[in-house]
Amino acid sequence: MPKLIKHDRVIDDAWTLLGADAAAGDVPATGPVLVPLRLWQAERSALLARGEIGVWLAPDEEPAKLAADVAQLPVIAVDFPKFGDGRGFSTARLLRERYGFAGELRAVGDIFRDQLFYLRECGFDAFAVRSDLDPERELAGLTAFDRVYTASTHTPHPWFRERVTRVAEAAPRDVWFPCG
């Protein structure tokens, strides 16, 4: 079974992802499935009735299109067709912070360890790393940093709001330098 990094560990992934051109007839009778936005919009009530449906967004698709559906969808995925295409980072923050999506937010596509930390900061909690990679090894990307300065979905306060208290407590070098 394919693997998924979710909540910072590797688990089995039961979800099937249907390609951008999938039609209603391609949806399997059973099992959890991620459908493209277009198919979701066309078949919303039928898909809702079937259950176990998630939707995936391409980088140029507006997260606002799912604003009314966030409570019904257990999973939303955002596609990163290329490592360097960073639109999905904004998509994720909007889904979480503006539209209040609380389900699994999954990054799919050209995903490997060097984006994982940034993706999690932006609200992703699940990562389908590229199938040629060992997800256990890619997990290392999540611990590249503890946090950065700015506020984001995962780290709701910028460092300057914590600075006063935390710096006073910090001090010993190894608290902050676990990697040497």
Binding site: F89, Y118, F145
Partner: peptide, 13 residues
């Protein structure tokens, strides 16, 4: 500088 350093949303512009 601090805000932009490793800014997670804007690292792949």
């Amino acid at each position: 500088r601090q805000w932009s350093t490793l800014n997670p949303e804007f690292s792949f512009l």
